[in-house]
Amino acid sequence: MLAIALVLFAVAVDPAACLPPRIELAGAGGVVEAPTRKRALLIFLDSQCPVSNGYSPEFARIAKTAAKAGIAVLGVHSDPSLSPAKAEEHAREHGLGFAVAVDARQVLARATGVRLVPQAVLSDANGRVVYRGRIDDLRTPEGIRRPAATRHDLRDALAAFIDGKPVPPPSGEPFGCPLPQPPESFRKE
């Protein structure tokens, strides 16, 4: 009885801690619904951020691993001045190989707590965020580039997520570009 209660407790989900069920983003072909009710890998990028762009081949590899395991992959641009067509072109040029969309109002970034790119989020079928953080430690939080990454935080988190094991949190703070912040005068809706 106690065991059942524990299991129920473990499965019970606090709706407040989950991503909203419906978030609409702009894709090159029209509205894209964010995968907030299926297992998903969200990759937060910025077409103008050199640190983010530098990860393109690594994004492509990780996305491939995720997609093979049936995890939905979406690249999220939080730049209000980027057109969905430009985002699509950027994805093609950088060989990303996964869908991208523009979240001009930064709804997904706010919901997941992402304030700097590149970062990734893993969320489960209830929209619960199980990982949010850096890709790896190629750069220190101060931006110094190591000869090679020594910790592959996102890969490790993804592997655990796929295996249904507890997902380890990132081993350190990310470095990159803060999200473009629309000044007051940009925020007319």
């Binding site: 803060p178 912040q181 000044p183």
Partner: peptide, 16 residues
């Protein structure tokens, strides 16, 4: 990596 010529360019990166 990004232009800083106009207000539109720089305003959105002000904090950065």
């Amino acid at each position: 990596p990004f232009p800083l010529l106009t207000y539109e360019d720089a305003g959105k990166r002000a904090g950065f």
